[in-house]
């Protein structure tokens, strides 16, 4: 038997609230706000409070899906990435780089967001990049 709480950062937005994930025998059973986090000081919003629900949700996307004949089919990362790269290149060649836009996410780290804007500006060649938490 093991019960512990693990300190982590809320993935939902850029505020960075500290939260504790409650783990019983390796299973995620709940979320508590961290009282000692200087950011949220023991408080959370409704999304932060339910972080543990999406982690174990059966609806969570854990493998890439590729649309084949109007149906989403589970595929390998290699296949999904190759397809994305090929199609992005085709679109850029035919319609120009400004025909592509990228929307990134507060669930990524700062570094991941940096890389994505680099890819958008340097590799694709457009300034069409935005972020869901750019309030």
């Amino acid at each position: 038997m093991e019960f512990k709480t693990v300190l982590t950062t809320c993935p939902y937005c850029g505020c960075g609230c500290g939260l504790l994930l409650e783990i019983l025998d390796g299973r995620l059973i709940g979320t508590l706000p961290s009282k000692t986090s200087p950011v949220n000081q023991g408080r959370l919003c409704v999304k932060g409070w339910s972080v543990h629900e999406f982690v174990t949700s059966p609806n969570r996307l854990i493998r890439p899906l590729v649309r084949k004949a109007d149906r989403l089919v589970e595929s390998s990362w290699d296949e999904a990435l190759d397809l994305s790269a090929r199609r992005l290149k085709e679109i850029k060649e035919r319609h120009g780089p400004d025909s592509i836009a990228v929307l990134t996410s507060a669930k990524c780290t700062n570094e991941e967001n940096y890389l994505l804007q680099k890819l958008t500006r340097a590799a694709i060649g457009t300034n069409n990049i935005d972020h869901c938490a750019r309030l």
Binding site: E2, T5, G18, L20, K35, T36
Partner: peptide
Amino acid sequence: DGHVMPHLFG
């Protein structure tokens, strides 16, 4: 690490 959290001491 400077944080207080619930724990089951075994």
